[in-house]
Simulated assay, not measured.
Amino acid sequence: MTLNSSSFTCRFAPSPNGPLHLGHAYSALVNHAAAEMASGRFLLRMEDIDTTRCRPEFETGIAQDLAWLGILPSEPPRRQSQHFDDYEAALQRLDALGLLYASFESRAEIARAVLAQEAGGGAWPRDPDGAPLYPFSRESVPDGVRHRRKLAGEPYVLRLDMERACDLAGQPLSWQEAPGTALATPQRVPADPARWGDVVLARKDVPASYHLAVVVDDQLQAITHVIRGRDLFAATEIHRLLQTLLGLPEPIYHHHALVLDADRRKLSKSTGAASLAALRAAGASPDEVKALIDRGLEQAQPTPST
């Protein structure tokens, strides 16, 4: 099922756990420009599902940054923290299909298991982001034992049984990718979600992972075009799988270039990328910010061969 592109709707979905930087600004500008060209809607979503790190002052800062850039959403923002029931309903549907199981290993235990496997010979497989695949199996612990440990209050995560999920979804999976610009004619891209292993969809203290929340939110906001950075290109494999399993509409995707710093690294809050608020306080204009974005995009281009 594909959404009707004539009712074009896209979204900018930052996490209010810090100030916006140039990379966020570029994604917001690309979404807003596409909505204007299509005479569609530009929505704002606050991905504040991690209530321990997200704060109201950062949400206020995001609204101020967008207003300064001249990017006004079509309606008030959707906040993930107000929709935990939606994610729980999706988890219950997946659980009813027999696709979820609780795992109790800590990050340290998982790392030790990976090292032990590699010590036995050969590199342990990694997902497209470079993280090692979950080194245990659902069958290693009976589901009844897992259930009793959950009821006992042990920390856990809920994992998707990838093999069963792919079998149920059927093959081959693919998604619609608009090349060049979000309004271009989309092309089918093959999806191989099995490369990600048994991904985490929720934790005991966090009601949904990014992968689950994003597909639920996109459906509930009637998003027709998902416009986001290239760093999430491969993750679309998981999203298409979840959309298929949950019977959700299939949006069109466009993964835009990333804004890089002078060392050609992706901009990040964690690495201290200059915030829009700091640039604004230093006297920069919106046009000067857009020029800085253009410079970062040029740095993202491949180095010409000599």
Results as ranks from 00 to 15, higher is better:
4 N>Y: 02
118 E>L: 00
215 V>F: 14
54 C>R: 06
156 Y>Q: 08
259 V>Y: 01
151 L>Q: 14
91 L>F: 01
167 D>R: 15
129 D>R: 13
92 Q>L: 11
13 A>P: 04
182 A>H: 03
187 Q>C: 11
1 M>K: 06
106 S>L: 02
127 D>T: 05
162 M>D: 04
38 A>P: 00
73 P>C: 05
297 L>W: 01
165 A>R: 08
73 P>F: 02
274 A>I: 13
299 Q>I: 06
251 P>A: 10
220 L>M: 14
41 R>D: 10
259 V>H: 01
294 D>G: 06
184 A>I: 12
144 G>D: 12
17 N>D: 15
187 Q>G: 07
25 A>D: 08
78 R>W: 08
56 P>F: 09
110 I>T: 01
238 I>P: 01
14 P>D: 09
129 D>E: 15
28 A>G: 07
56 P>I: 08
56 P>C: 10
30 V>A: 04
124 W>H: 06
106 S>R: 00
290 K>G: 00
112 R>A: 15
159 R>F: 01
287 D>R: 08
62 I>F: 07
31 N>S: 13
138 R>K: 12
261 D>A: 13
210 Y>Q: 14
16 P>L: 12
52 T>H: 09
67 A>T: 11
172 P>Q: 10
266 K>P: 05
92 Q>T: 13
128 P>S: 07
140 S>T: 11
32 H>T: 02
120 G>R: 05
138 R>L: 02
4 N>F: 02
245 L>C: 12
75 E>V: 06
149 R>F: 09
169 A>F: 11
276 L>N: 04
306 T>M: 07
87 Y>E: 02
150 K>A: 04
127 D>K: 05
235 A>N: 10
148 R>A: 13
293 I>S: 05
227 I>D: 00
247 G>C: 12
22 L>E: 00
201 L>Q: 08
19 P>K: 02
101 Y>L: 06
42 F>D: 00
31 N>F: 03
137 S>W: 04
72 L>P: 00
108 A>G: 01
244 T>P: 02
204 K>G: 09
283 G>A: 06
39 S>T: 04
